[in-house]
Amino acid sequence: MTTVERKIPAPLTLPDTQPYWDAANEGRLMIKRCDDCGEPHHYPRDVCPFCMSTRTSWLACSGKGTVYSYSTMRRGDLAYTLAYVTLEEGPTMMTNLVDCDPASLGVGQAVRAVFKPAENGQAVPMFTPAQ
């Protein structure tokens, strides 16, 4: 099957998560962790979804994770793989699995973060099989 590169829509960023996107542009993946209850979460919020504390801080991630689930969508000659990846730090995030043969993927597979530019140049964290 021939495939074409999918254009990555620019994320509609909001001011409270600008540090996440700035870090992504530097090739770093970050999540939020609560200063009060200590629980990490994703997507990042100013208000902890577990204890409602307004004291949350950015936490640098290793970029390592495992595939929780995935699906390759085919539309004409376009194919891309949506996934949930569980980070080493705990939270599971929505992402794409890229630079790999979808037929070779599996649940539980080890992956690592890579950063791909969206249509507006913003780097977006995606994952590829770990070597």
């Binding site: 509609l12 960023t13 699906s71 969508m73 995030m93 794409n96 995606m126």
Partner: peptide, 14 residues
């Protein structure tokens, strides 16, 4: 939205 939209979630692949 910012943390899902770029990855192309649709009803089908979700």
């Amino acid at each position: 939205v910012a943390f899902e939209g770029p990855f192309g979630p649709t009803t089908q692949n979700m």
